[in-house]
Design a binder for these strands. Sequence first.
DNA 1: TCTGGGGTCCTGCCCCCA
DNA 2: TCTGTGGGGGCAGGACCC
Length: 398
Amino acid sequence: MDAFFASVELLRYPQLQGLPVVIGGSRHTPEDEAALIARWGGLEQIPLEAFPRLAGYVGRGVITTATYPARQFGVGSAMGMMKAARLCPQAILLPIDFVRYRTYSRRFKEVILSLAPVMEDRGVDEVYIDFTAVPGGQEEGGRALAARIQQAIHAKTGLTCSVGVAPNKLLAKMASEFQKPRGISIVQPQDLEQLIWPLACRKINGIGPKADARLQALGITTIGDLAACSLPFLVQHFGKSYGAWLHAAAHGQDERPVVTESEPVSMSRETTFERDLHAVQDKAELGAIFTRLCERVAEDLVRKGYAGRTIGIKLRYADFRSVTRDMSLDHFTQDAAAIRRAAGLCLKRVPLQQRIRLLGVRVGALVAWENGAPRDAGEVPVASHRSRPSDPFTAPLF
DNA sequence: TCTGGGGTCCTGCCCCCA
DNA sequence: TCTGTGGGGGCAGGACCC
């Protein structure tokens, strides 16, 4: 199987090209931006000094993404806003605008689907493409089709895009990182030793900070180091499943197909409070937030046509420890009140002495749902007789 | 002054059942 | 009836990804 991995860059103000820009935080909203556009008569007319700066940012939140010039200062995704403000106070701060990202994301994927129909959606700005059967897909080792895709995306959306071409998804993803933001990189199996093995283990999609730290403790820093380890050694240190996967990944092996359709497994809503709240002292506020989260999950379920029977909550305490509690109902639901009742029972099972910074509600074990019944009645998972029944007579805590 | 939100998948443990 | 064993589901936590 031959795979492309493509990711697009989303920066829509031409006057900000080449400048440090971060997106994230909660202080600025897209409405602020609308006001800016209204005042200056257009997106391109906004002068640099009119954009808010990161300096002096106060409040919670993290950086969602940053331009390459901002990354030069050490600012990056998932970094706290206050820390980023210290590292690069002059950076321009843009609000998150999910509505616009989704619009552009849809357009970018439509362009790809029109050229190569076997596409796996990997989020708002990434896809995998199987181009084995695309006419002309093998020309110049895939480079010709990659260039056509890049040009079509730019023509239809104005966005740039980097592409990796490789025999499988694992290598295509790594190849796409080689020339950002608008390159085409091709990795063949014989390039493994020269192009992949010198890279840090962390570059493998699936090795995160924890696994990387454990590898480093064993003296394994590059993918080449990892490839030099025997399978029994990796299984001994990382378990049968993950150890075998590490071994295969280091040798560039990945048999996963490009998956064009998938059903969601769970839906959730969570929120981090402006300040840490206490279950007793802030009972009314917490109760209102909790109910609203349940309503929002229910709205999502109804809008997308799903119902679920495992209801769960997530709490993050002020010290950042997290706990979750779940319970399975004997029926599927997409009803906010039913979710609220079950989530309330889950909440009764967690200690609430400490202040809380985050609360979340999740519905899992989903089935496609239509007009009060499963969409495909033949394949409904049967509720286990062991599932705990909900107790409608027990009042939720808040 | 720390650390968002929405997901998936995996693992370990416990319990129930055959 | 007791004990062992293995499978499967539920649950909790954690790692990882975008």
